[in-house]
Design a protein around this nucleic acid. Sequence first.
DNA 1: TTGTAGGCGTTATCAC
DNA 2: GTGATAACGCCTACAA
Lengths: 335, 335
Amino acid sequence: MNRPPTIKDVAERAGVHAATASRALNPATRGMVNARTASRVAEAARALGYAPNSAARSLRTRTSSVAGVIIPDLRNPVFPPIVRGIEDGLRDAGYMALVGNTDGDPDRERELVTAMRGRQIDGFILATSRRSDELTSSVPTVLVNRRTDNGGIPSVTADNAAGIHLLVRHLTDLGHTRIGHVAGPRDLSTGWERYRGYLDATTSLGLEAATDAVEFAGAFTETAGHAATLRLLAAHPSLTAVLAGNDLIALGCYSALAELGRTVPGDVSVTGFNDMPFVDRQRPSLTTVRIPHYDIGREAARLLLERIASPTAPAKRVVLPVELVRRDSTAAAQS
Amino acid sequence: MNRPPTIKDVAERAGVHAATASRALNPATRGMVNARTASRVAEAARALGYAPNSAARSLRTRTSSVAGVIIPDLRNPVFPPIVRGIEDGLRDAGYMALVGNTDGDPDRERELVTAMRGRQIDGFILATSRRSDELTSSVPTVLVNRRTDNGGIPSVTADNAAGIHLLVRHLTDLGHTRIGHVAGPRDLSTGWERYRGYLDATTSLGLEAATDAVEFAGAFTETAGHAATLRLLAAHPSLTAVLAGNDLIALGCYSALAELGRTVPGDVSVTGFNDMPFVDRQRPSLTTVRIPHYDIGREAARLLLERIASPTAPAKRVVLPVELVRRDSTAAAQS
DNA sequence: TTGTAGGCGTTATCAC
DNA sequence: GTGATAACGCCTACAA
């Protein structure tokens, strides 16, 4: 239980001064030191099992090689693969992730940001932003999955518009012309961009009455999707297809349609968004758009490291491609 | 972009010495200081937006209020609620979680442990342990979900044996007497304890031939479960019920039985373990045992904090109760 | 190429 | 009850 070795111990063992040991151990300054002494120091460090004290290093250099990752709730199946991607992306650069959940509460988010700043975080990856957020962080920050309307902060998101276009195209290919939309919350870029994509796709394909065949779900949840679907079909009973804002909303569509005595896909086709785990095993299996969650996370980590290296470079907005996954919840329209 | 305020700034503004400010701000030492100066300091800190520099504090106190959480893979649906529970449990005490994934690789695990130690972690929560691991950490450590055979390290797990008893009892109540087991890996406490529970329950209920009606799946995955189920039914074609090591293995049972032309639950009843998300929506919905993932995480955090406070107290092994969830994958045995 | 010295911000110890 | 001081371990001008 004796103290871990310090750089002084290493220096002593190698017969040099602490400053020399420090230079020898740091790749960036290794060149300043005689190659033979350098390897002697390295050997001593290895023998002692020396690991630099990061608190001391942070205090001195004002960097920590730690990134703060703030998400709404890890239990939402969208986030685990994203966080995993972030972790893997950070690891390559020797960074680690401090993870915090907000449950969508802005106060909680502020608390977390403050607490993490106090811990000398080098940067933030936020998955919690609303479209209207005006983030003015002095710390390098990257948005993931969601983004703000204001493009000042780098972000990594899926191509929501393209995904919706793929779905609408898939449905029109099946002969559908009366396609409704159960949209996600308007204040989140995911909900909003998919809604805009729906408007674009339907109008550009010349489908009538699309603009008002929309209901907004209060949240990306099954229950909110259920309620919104009931409202949508009450107003538009003749719809033959429903585009849901995401997979959970689509599951809400399933139950609402069942409640209304409509079959999927016999009477109404339903589509989701995200391709979260196990939607391929629902009854019926869900036609949806696959978004590359893990890659989104990894890319966000890359962007953050880039940003830390050059904080004043212009903010990139990376949009990753998505993929249509045809399954059994969509079928030819009944005429 | 000027430097964040230090305790010296706060002291100056309050007209006291830095040491006094430090005492005033620290709840533990607040008593040493005059109440009026204390509140003057607090006010100055608030006005300046002072947040202590945790690197300096860590350097001085050798504590960081950060815990390392090491898991196999966040994408395994068991872990998100556990990690979330840990995070919530730590937060109450002002701790944060540094999360790392190992993919079950012991080398990777060692790397992570070393790296986190270098970061002045106050303790570890490990979800990666194998039964045979001999952990001899000088840092407070708690095992979660899995544990080692050697009881020297505190752990928080679900009551696997009780869960299996509930399932076996449920099946015998339905008239089953020929119950097989597709077990999880023997080297993990989860797989092992459920296997032992199966032996106990079947023998204590006087079911014949139970001991050899077991196949071990190579992993807690659907494919491993599928393969093991085929082996089990080849050797024991007359089984009317299969107890799977966990939910994913149970899904493998489903597909294997379908491949063999047996219906669930008509020909064979199947049970899982964990009650992971969406198994209630499989066809058929899965009878399983619900384990309190979130509470397990929270309790692990509590235990770790306790351990940090008194590192030499005897190691508790906390076992949390589980609950039978009856669904459609089990039915009365055909006679 | 290597050694010396000072300081990062905080807290513990000692003196008043 | 408060102030002065030193030390935690590391890094980096600057000096040699």
